[in-house]
C-alpha cells in the first residue's frame, strides 16, 4: 500500500502560491484558515529559499498522540485525518505539530476556538466519500477519485511533489543527481524520521 508523503523541492519553489490558492479553490477554504502556506527563509538574501508547507501527515503523528479526545485516525495510505465531530478545539495539536498545520475558525482565546481544520491530503474525513456532508466539513476527496492533492498537481514549477513516499523520493533524487544541487527534503527527518539521501 502507498505511503503518502509531501516533498517540497525548495530549489524549484518560487513562492508563487499556486498551492495555496489551489487548496482554497478546491475546498472553498474560508479567509483566515490557511491549510497551506509558503514560508521563505532568509528572505532577500542570496541563500533565500521558499518552502510550501501544510501538514506532512507524519509517521506516529504528534497531533494524534496529544489529542485529549483521540479524534485523529490514520488511513491505510498513512494520511492523518481527524473527525470534526469529536474535536473539542483545545489547540493541543497545534503545540505538538512540528509544522503548524492545525487551523482554527476562531482566534482570541483558548475558550471557544471551534473545530480544528487542517490539510486532509485531499482525502476528506470520516464521512462517506464524495458526499456533500464531507465537502462541507473537510472539503473535496480527490484521493477517492483516484487523483492526488491539487496543491501538488497544480504547483507551477512541479516543486511540490505528492504521492507515494518512495516514488517522490526517487523523483527528487534523480533531479538532484541530474542538476548537481539540492537543499534536502524539507521536514522529512522530523515528519517521517527518515530523509532522502542525496
Amino acid at each position: 500500500m502507498a505511503r503518502m508523503k509531501f516533498l517540497c523541492d525548495a530549489d524549484r519553489c518560487i513562492e508563487c502560491n499556486a498551492c495555496v490558492t489551489a487548496c482554497k479553490n478546491e475546498h472553498e477554504v474560508p479567509w483566515g484558515i490557511n491549510r497551506r502556506r509558503v514560508v521563505t527563509l532568509n528572505d532577500g538574501k542570496p541563500s533565500e529559499r521558499s518552502i510550501s508547507m501544510a501538514c506532512m501527515h507524519c509517521t506516529d503523528a504528534p497531533c494524534a498522540a496529544v489529542c485529549p479526545v483521540n479524534c485523529f485516525f490514520t488511513t491505510a495510505d498513512a494520511v492523518v485525518l481527524h473527525s470534526k465531530d469529536l474535536c473539542i478545539g483545545c489547540g493541543y495539536c497545534f503545540y505538538a505539530c512540528p509544522f503548524g498545520a492545525p487551523q482554527y475558525p476562531r482566534v482570541g482565546n483558548f475558550g471557544s476556538r471551534g473545530k480544528m481544520d487542517k490539510c486532509t491530503y485531499c482525502a476528506g474525513g470520516p464521512e462517506a466519500d464524495l458526499t456533500t456532508a464531507e465537502y462541507e466539513k473537510y472539503g473535496s476527496n480527490r484521493l477517492a477519485e483516484g487523483k492526488l492533492p491539487l496543491c501538488a498537481e497544480m504547483c507551477s514549477t512541479k516543486a511540490l511533489l505528492a504521492g507515494d513516499g518512495e516514488i517522490i523520493a526517487q523523483i527528487y533524487k534523480e533531479r538532484v543527481v541530474k542538476r548537481g544541487y539540492g537543499s534536502g527534503a524539507w521536514g522529512w527527518k522530523t515528519a517521517y524520521r527518515e530523509t532522502v539521501a542525496i
Binding site: 502560491n17 514560508v39 527563509l41 504528534p62 505538538a96 503548524g100 522530523t190
Partner: peptide, 24 residues
C-alpha cells in the same frame, strides 16, 4: 526554522519546530 510569510498570521511564518515531538 523561522521565515517570512505574506499573510497576517505571524505563526504561519514558523516553518518547522521539532520541539513539537519532544512536547508530545
Amino acid at each position: 526554522l523561522q521565515g517570512r510569510v505574506s499573510i497576517p498570521d505571524g505563526k504561519a511564518a514558523l516553518l518547522e519546530q521539532p520541539q513539537g515531538r519532544e512536547w508530545r
